[in-house]
């Protein structure tokens, strides 16, 4: 089994630079002028391309852009539903990983290690069909649960790291005032940890948004699947997937920006 026992903070060794590149969209910050401009070009560029395609080549693009919005709505529901569930799972997983009770931390660690070791697509199939054997749920619900279980593991690691990043003295001070563990966690540690974990959670949100396209193989009529349906009927594969890619790009860029704005406001409010 991979090292499950407590991993020390990586900050401790100042000699070795630490780089962290998530698989979410790069979130533009004001200071990062190059990226900021790249964001503008990509976002407004793709909007312009969409408009041009509709205006100058309404057949098939107007029909495509009329057909896929149902799918956008489904993609949105899957993403928001999964992220909410994943946050709840992640909170408990993170707390579980830090539990002093060996059984609880063992279960939480096992969950994280297993999930992280299996490709998302395989997990989706597995959980979807495993769930299908026990209960008969609508495809969308199963897909949301499956995505949440997958992403819950990653969220758990984010929560764990966020909680561990708060100095030990904060917990000691809270406990010294007579608070029990849960009171100290809820009143003192988590409110501080939220500010630390918000950026990585934003990244996860965008990553999940993109990965939600995988649920299209589970008979969920999301953006990608709507595109596939349209393409299969009209044989306009190139045009349809161009449109689908543009829509994903616009949505992803939009949320990256929104999240970086939120972060700015939070760090401004300290």
């Amino acid at each position: 089994m991979a090292p499950v026992r407590r991993r020390r903070k990586k900050i401790e060794d100042p000699g070795r630079p630490v780089i962290e590149i998530g698989d979410g969209a790069a979130i533009p910050t004001k200071k990062d002028a190059g990226l900021f401009n790249a964001w503008r070009i990509a976002f407004f560029g793709s909007l312009a391309v969409v408009v041009c395609l509709i205006v100058f080549k309404p057949d098939p693009y107007l029909r495509i852009f009329a057909f896929v919005p149902d799918g956008i709505w489904v993609t949105f529901k899957v993403t928001v539903g999964s992220i909410f569930l994943a946050l709840i799972i992640g909170l408990f997983t993170g707390l579980g990983r830090l539990s002093t009770q060996k059984i609880i931390s063992g279960i939480a660690s096992l969950y994280v290690e297993v999930i992280r070791g299996i490709p998302l697509l395989v997990q989706l199939f597995y959980i979807y069909f495993a769930l299908g054997r026990i209960v008969q749920l609508p495809a969308m619900t199963s897909a949301i649960i499956a995505m949440a279980i997958c992403y819950g593991a990653y969220m758990g690691e984010i929560f764990r790291a966020g909680i561990q990043s708060i100095p030990k003295g904060q917990m000691e001070a809270a406990r010294s005032l007579g608070m029990n563990k849960s009171q100290a966690m809820a009143q003192v540690i988590l409110p501080q940890a939220v500010k630390v974990i918000l950026p990585p959670i934003g990244n996860e949100f965008v990553a999940l948004l993109k990965d939600s396209s995988l649920v299209s193989i589970l008979a969920v009529a999301d953006l990608l699947r709507r595109g596939r349906e349209f393409a299969a009927e009209t044989f306009t594969y190139f045009e349809t997937y161009t449109a689908v890619a543009l829509v994903y790009l616009i949505i992803t860029l939009f949320f990256s920006k929104l999240i970086s704005r939120m972060e700015e406001r939070i760090s401004a409010n300290r």
Binding site: P167, L177, M179, Q183, V188, Q192
Partner: peptide, 27 residues
Amino acid sequence: VGMVFQSFNVFPHKTVMQNLTLAQIVV
């Protein structure tokens, strides 16, 4: 038993007033 630490350990996300009232209210 009150405890005062070398590193203060005041709660940075609370105002001074909230630092003083939190445990009074919760505990």
